[in-house]
């Protein structure tokens, strides 16, 4: 499924569905979230096109020579919960991470008809195979916490929270 296709199909995805994603995703974790939200509050221009964007909670290891990226699995999503509703309001479409989200995030996902995906936690080596290109696009001073633009192929995702607010962890 590609970015454009994902936008069309997003409403049909149900918590628990498995998909393979092809397209562009941006990495962002704690400090990048803090900066993005500060920028939104100050009405500054964001360094990435946030409308409909896919954000991946990830801080990869260093890239060895000849490789595209290092190990690049998901980090714990709940640490981003305080920032997420503001980013969703600004147009963020999709999040990828691991673990559960707060009630506020579930409500915001429902309100803005976004989706939260899980990917294979602690499998950063395997996931690196799906990354076809990677380049830092913002906050490079943050090192592994910089925002990287990744092009991914057959990136495995499980729908964690769908646009209707159904949560895979609450249905277990």
């Amino acid at each position: 499924m590609q970015n454009s296709k994902l936008q069309c199909k997003i409403q049909n995805l149900k918590a628990g569905d498995d998909i393979l994603f092809n397209g562009v995703i941006y990495t962002a974790r704690d400090q990048a979230h803090k900066r993005l939200v500060e920028a939104i509050k100050k009405r500054e221009k964001l360094p990435i096109p946030i409308k409909g964007a896919v954000i991946y909670y990830c801080g990869p290891t260093k890239t060895a020579p000849g490789k595209t990226i290092g190990s690049c699995g998901p980090t714990t999503s709940s640490r981003m919960d305080v920032f997420t509703p503001i980013l969703l309001e600004a147009g963020l479409g999709v999040m990828i991470g691991k673990g559960s989200r707060s009630k506020e995030v579930v409500e915001a996902i429902k309100k803005y008809r976004a989706v939260y995906f899980l990917t294979y936690a602690g499998c950063g080596a395997l996931l690196s195979k799906c990354v076809k290109s990677a380049k830092p696009v913002a906050y490079e001073d943050l090192g592994p916490e910089a925002i990287y633009k990744l092009e991914v192929e057959d990136f495995p995702l499980i729908v964690g929270i769908d646009t209707k607010g159904n949560d895979i962890y609450r249905s277990l």
């Binding site: 990830c58 290891t61 190990s71 950063g124 080596a125 395997l126 690196s128 195979k129």
Partner: peptide, 12 residues
């Protein structure tokens, strides 16, 4: 895969 390709098991 991590062992064979000499890449970290986890990004953390």
């Amino acid at each position: 895969y991590a062992k064979s390709k000499k890449i970290a098991i986890c990004q953390d």
